[in-house]
Amino acid sequence: MEHIDRTPGIQLSESEAAAEARRIIEGLYRSEPAPEPIPTSYRDTSPNTPTAAAPVAQEGRPPMSQRATDLSGLMLAGSVASLSVGGATSLVLYTLGQVDPVTLAVGAAGPVALVLAVGSLIRSVGRAKQDMHTEHHHHYQGGVVQNTTHVDQTTKGVFANTRNQVRR
C-alpha cells in the first residue's frame, strides 16, 4: 500500500482518495486489534507555575477597595429596604383614598429638601474654613515681649480620649 501525503490544504486525486478510503475501511474491519490504543484524553502533570504579572484593570466597572465594595452593598440593601417601605406606604394611602395629593407631594419633597439643605450647609462651612486667614500682623511702639502658645487638641474613640499638645 502506498503512503499518501495528508498535509492540510492538499487536494487528493480521485485515485488517491479511493485508495485512502479503502485503507480506512479495511482497517475498521480488521480482525486483529490495532497496534496501540489511540489516546482520547491528556492530563498535564507538570506543576503550575505562578504568574508574576501585575493585575490589569478590566473593562466595565472599575476596581474598588474592599471598604468601597462593602459600602456599595450596604447602600444597595438600604435602597431596596426604602423602596419596599415607600411602596407599602403609598399602597396604604392609595387604598384609603382620603389623602390630598398636595400633602403627599410636600411630604415626599421634605426629606429631599432637608438633604439638599444639609449638603449646602456643609459646602458653605467648608468654603468658610478655606477662606480663614492664618496670617497675623501686629504693630507695636516701644519694648514688647510676646509669648505665643498653640494648643492642638484631638479627640478620638468611642469613649472620647482627648490629647492636648502644647507648642511654644
Rank of each mutant, 00 (worst) to 15 (best):
V56I: 01
K129L: 12
S124F: 07
G73M: 03
V92E: 04
V125A: 06
R167C: 05
T40H: 13
Q141T: 12
P33T: 02
E59K: 08
N48F: 11
E14P: 00
T40N: 14
R67F: 10
V92M: 15
T51Y: 04
L12C: 03
S120T: 07
A81Q: 14
Y140W: 10
G73L: 04
V92C: 14
A21I: 08
Y29E: 09
L93C: 03
T45H: 10
G60P: 01
H137E: 12
A128Y: 01
V144C: 06
G27C: 06
H3E: 08
A108P: 00
A17K: 02
R23G: 07
T89E: 02
G126A: 12
G78N: 15
R127H: 08
T69N: 07
A128S: 03
R61P: 06
V118W: 05
P101T: 02
S72G: 14
P37S: 11
G27T: 04
E32N: 07
A17Q: 05
V144T: 15
G143V: 13
G97E: 01
A57E: 03
T95C: 13
T134F: 08
A160D: 12
E2R: 10
P35V: 00
P55F: 00
P8A: 01
R167P: 03
L104G: 00
A53G: 09
E59I: 06
L121P: 01
M132Q: 13
E14A: 15
E36H: 07
L91E: 09
G60R: 00
G107M: 13
E36N: 11
Q66L: 15
H133P: 05
Q130V: 07
G110I: 04
S124R: 07
E26V: 09
E20N: 05
P8S: 00
A81S: 14
P8Y: 01
